[in-house]
Amino acid sequence: MVTDNLVDRPQQLPAPTPAPVDRSSKLEKLAKPLLIGFVILYLTLVLFIPALNVFVQAFSGGISGFLNTFHERTFLNALRLTLLMAVISVPLNTVFGLCAAWAIARNKKFPGRTLLISIIDLPFSVSPVVAGLMIVLLYGRNGWFGPLLEANNIKIIFAVPGMVLATIFVSLPFVAREVLPVLEEIGTEQEEAAKTLGANGWQTFWRVTLPSIRWGLLYGVLLTNARAMGEFGAIAVVSGNITGKTQTLPLFVEEAYKQYQTQSAYTAAVLLACLAIVTMVAKAILEQKTGTKNQAGH
């Protein structure tokens, strides 16, 4: 079994070693099928059946049942609002992510570098509900800016601006986190060469830096987008979940499920699941692209 295992992947072995003394027990022979079997069983229970169920339930009433949901006004409003969240927060977080990644990657040593990275990571570890709470405490009626906003008749909480702020908070780190390692890996030689040849900062970024970070950037944007469209907790806190007004698709899913409108809930869920599939497929493709690129580089 031991040698068998090694023969499977000859490329990882520089030279075939003489077969070790036969110590393989029955347990070792069983290890591979047992472990693979466990993995498949575990993933089937936790991941695959739940994922499959989304599609089965959505189309259990046939295509017409699925399409009927598209005539619901609240559903269409939720869809529109979900897209709006992404349209506003993704570009903002992308610009920020690029700036932050560049500032951090191009300055290897400044006081608080690790702290800055940790602060950017904060939304990953803070509960989305706590993020929403922060925004309520800041812009809500009793919040810091509450009186000022009320005097000027600006509504942020229970309205779209607050939802955008919450979305930005929870999806903030992705671009910075995906671009930073790529920037660190490509180094500064090419940028310096461009500068030497007379390119200004903007030209250097646009013609030299951006092309070499494009895959990492694209993946970061996709993750930001997936989170922005799929966010639930933070938006639930700040939006007040006013049907048809401040309800995004994830909120619509919960509401429809609670009202026993299973078909509507699963129609919306399928749209969100498709978003997840697009994100995962894009990741697989991008990984292949960057993977081959890395191999060529070595």
Partner: peptide, 10 residues
């Protein structure tokens, strides 16, 4: 990648 509301629902 899957929005948490969808995970909860299914």
């Amino acid at each position: 990648a899957l929005p948490t509301a969808v995970a909860g629902l299914t």
